[in-house]
Amino acid sequence: MGTSFLSWDNVSAYFMFADKPLVLILFTIVVGFICISLIMSIKQHEDKAFQRHANNQKMTPN
């Protein structure tokens, strides 16, 4: 489904979907989304870990 050519004659850009700019733009958006979601996911993980640590400290007798 992704191939942009059926023969190697006169081929220039030969990667999948090279002839479908909208698909390439969609891929670009997905890459950006993954990068942003990684940072958001790390922040969430940090918030949870720090909260868990704070709770543990409260429960630990002095």
Partner: peptide, 12 residues
């Protein structure tokens, strides 16, 4: 990033 120059290309 969606340009054909930013990917495998035989003449570039």
């Amino acid at each position: 990033p969606w340009s054909t120059s930013m990917g495998p290309k035989l003449d570039e």
